[in-house]
């Protein structure tokens, strides 16, 4: 038996490489999503609408983990928390997925001034009902 656990832990990045190196390794050096005009705000909701039937070039295990998670729609912040990846990395990965149309995005309201009174009342009633 080969020490499989040991093998898995022997990554080419050691601890000293730090979070930034790991982040850029996952995104292949990119700091911005490939998609223009979508900034994947922290509370933007992501849902998986399709998954690759076969291996797609440029999509790695982290991309697949996101698609798996977002079968049930969730926010960008939740994806980051649940996969333990920084937001900057998650956004790049989401950009890849969006350009392949594997996900859809529901954007939040842009500014608090545009929030409708109806929405605030709904939030109030929801909180009161807790």
């Amino acid at each position: 038996m080969i020490g499989r656990d040991d093998h898995e832990r022997t990554e080419w990045l050691d601890e000293e490489a730090g979070p930034l190196v790991r982040a850029y390794a996952l995104t292949r050096g990119r700091a911005r999503p490939a998609t223009q005009g979508e900034d994947f705000e922290m509370i933007a909701i992501i849902a998986t609408v399709s998954t690759p039937a076969y291996a797609t070039p440029g999509l790695g295990p982290e991309h697949m983990s996101i698609l798996e998670l977002c079968v049930r729609p969730r926010s960008v912040a939740e994806i980051s928390a649940q996969l333990g990846l920084p937001l900057v990395v998650v956004r790049v990965l989401l950009g890849d997925l969006l350009s392949h149309r594997f996900i859809v995005v529901r954007r939040p309201q842009q500014e608090h001034q545009t929030v409708t009174e109806e929405l605030l009342r709904e939030v109030l009633h929801g909180l009161e009902a807790l």
Binding site: M42, I43, A44, I45, A47, V49, S50, T51, A53, P73, S75, R101, F102, V104, V105, R106, P108, Q109, V115, L119, V123
Partner: peptide, 17 residues
């Protein structure tokens, strides 16, 4: 392997913070 639904975003939850 299913195809994306163009209207899917409309069915999704809205988030506020």
């Amino acid at each position: 392997g299913s195809s994306p639904r163009a209207d899917a975003a409309a069915d999704m939850p809205l988030a506020v913070k």
